[in-house]
Design a protein around this nucleic acid. Sequence first.
DNA 1: TGGTAAACGAAAATCATTGTTTTTTGGCCC
DNA 2: GGGCCAAAAAACAATGATTTTCGTTTACCA
Lengths: 158, 158
Amino acid sequence: MVIECRLMRSPEELVKSFRESGRKVTPQREKIFQILQGNKTHPTAESVYAELLREMPTVSLKTVYQTLHELVGMGEISPLDLGTGSARFDPNQSTHHHLVCTRCHSVKDLYLDIEDIQIPGEQLEGFDAGTAEITFRGHCSKCRTAVSGQSQIAVHQG
Amino acid sequence: MVIECRLMRSPEELVKSFRESGRKVTPQREKIFQILQGNKTHPTAESVYAELLREMPTVSLKTVYQTLHELVGMGEISPLDLGTGSARFDPNQSTHHHLVCTRCHSVKDLYLDIEDIQIPGEQLEGFDAGTAEITFRGHCSKCRTAVSGQSQIAVHQG
DNA sequence: TGGTAAACGAAAATCATTGTTTTTTGGCCC
DNA sequence: GGGCCAAAAAACAATGATTTTCGTTTACCA
C-alpha cells in the first residue's frame, strides 16, 4: 500500500477556494485556517475556539463549528470520532490510523503499510465498505508511567 | 489469529457476581441483564431503556446508565463509540470489528481472521496498545439501494 | 425484623452541538 | 469610495446524550 500525502491546503489557498465557491472570507475564518494549518493535535472545536479567543475575544463557538463544517464539506479536513467525548478535526488527510490513550485522551497518528483488509463475502451481506479506520487504544508513554505509579496507592480503582 | 468466544455471562451468573462484589440486585437490574443477553443489536442506553419501560413504566434512564456502567466496569459488556451519536453497548466480548452504515447508523459485527497488526516501533514512542478496533464505514445493502434511488432526484445534495 | 448503605426516581444540570434571530460585513456594482 | 445584499457573525435559546443532585425506597446482612 502506498501512503500518499494529502494535507489541508494553505490558508492562502483556502481563502481563494472559499471565494471561488461563493463563500465569504472573514478574519475569523482566516485565523481558523491558520490555527489548523499543520496542526497535529487533532483539535476539537472547543480547542480551536480557545486558541481563537486569545486574538478575537468576541468570537462565538458557533462560528468555529460552522467553519470546521465548511472545511469538512470541502474535503480539507476530516472529522474524527475517537470516543473521546467530542468530535475532533484532522487537517491531515493522508490515509492513517490512530493511537488513542484511554487515560489522557491524547491521539497520535499512525502510518501503517498494511494490505487491504479482506472481508469474507458471506459476512458483508451487501454492505459496501468505503473506508476502514483502525483505532488502537492503550496508554501513551506518559500515562503508562503515571498508571503504574498510581496503582501502588490505588490498586483497587478501575 | 484464533477468534475466541467470550459472551456476557447469563443473568443468573450476573446476579451471583453482583452480590459477591457487594452490589445489590434489583428487579430493574435483572431485567436489564435479560435484555442484554445474546443481544446483537449493539443497543444504546436509550434503546435498553425503551425495552425496559415496557415492563417497568416508572424506571428511570439513570438506572439504565448506572447498570450499564457497572457491567462495563465488571468487563461483562463493552462500550462502543462508533460515531453514531450515542454510546452503544455490546454484550459480545469476542474479538470483532464493525461495519457501520453512514446513512442509517446500523452496526454489524465482523469477524476477521487477520494477523496481529504490526506497528512500526519508531511510531509507537512508548505507546502501549492493548486493543485494535477496525471500523468499516459505508452503506448497508438497504441504504445502498435507497441512496442510489434517491440520487436520481437529489443529485446535488450531500 | 430492622438498620444501613445501595439503588431508585424525578428533576435539574452539564456537555457538545445545533437552531434561531438580529446585527454586521465581505465583496460586487456603480 | 458609497451602497447593496446575501452570507456570516454574535448572542442566546434549544437539543440530545449523559451525569448530578437529592429525597425516598429497598435489598440484604445481622
